[in-house]
Amino acid sequence: MSARSGPGLRAPQPRTEDGPASARSGPAAPQPRPKIRTVSGPDTRSRRQLVLMLAPYLVGLVGLVLVPAVVTLALAFTEYDLLRPPAWAGLDNFTALVDDPIFRVALLNSVVFALVAVPLRVLLALGLALLLHRRAVGTGTARTAALLPTAVPEIAYGLLWLWLFNPLYGPINQLLRIGGEQGLTVLGRTPPQWLTDPTSARAGIILMSLFTMGETFVVLLAARRALPRDVYEMAAIEDATGWDVFRRVTLPLMAPVLALLAVRDAIASLHFTFVPAFVVTDGGPPPYATTYLSLFVYQTGFEYLRYGYAAAATLVMMLLTVAAVLVQWRLIRRYRRLYTF
């Protein structure tokens, strides 16, 4: 006890001694205190403020992404129909998925779509960005035109294409029939039956998706503009051809942005196939020609109320996403090593 109270009694003594001492010595003692405050005080205060500024976003990140992802992980091993509490199902959902022909078709459709549509979309956006980044007559209008389809709400865009694709009254097939006879094209072939033929329907969904690359286009436009001008002046002095400039200057400098955008687009394609497939083709024509993973998840969960099964399919979707990201990052790393020396 005495050992404990000892320091306790002693401790205040230096403080009381220190107080009058600093008051006595006047200007010498207050000096160190403000110094400490300006260095450590506002620093921690501003750090706290910065963390507060970040907080709402962190809440969103945790509440809308992290927690749902964990919930998916848990739900995937259960049977859940919203009415009864989730029941543990072990790996049943996954074994059922493997044997589910619709799921396999949906998986294949999604992968094929990403492999075909994403490169086309990014290429189109890059081409337009490089074409339109300079100030010239009409570029402003052209940029706006390139962006407009992206600004159209998905559902309105889908309904528009429902009309465009109509085999009889739709403008696309009316155009294709110009010059032909008896409802055939000039080449004497029947125009595509967009909504009833599986291949045409898949092509149609890809065609629809090409015009909505506006976001990628804007980012690439900004990225192209941010490139240092003197590099291009140097290239001009060196008499580099347009192709050389593109291959050796523009492409390497824009590679990281392109990689980020391609990754983003590949993943987004899992999602943006939903509305076209839902509204325009309704997952058809048989057999499930345009049923993509997104539509499969939606139907399984919200139409057949098999949330556990839908979560398992979602998990597969996420794994696919991770795989896509890893592959593309590896590609880009190799690509950058080629150019940076």
Partner: peptide
Amino acid sequence: ASLVALMVPATALLVPRFAI
């Protein structure tokens, strides 16, 4: 974390977000 969140397609979060 943001890049990871960006990776997750919106459709993949439908079911769990709905449950929440």
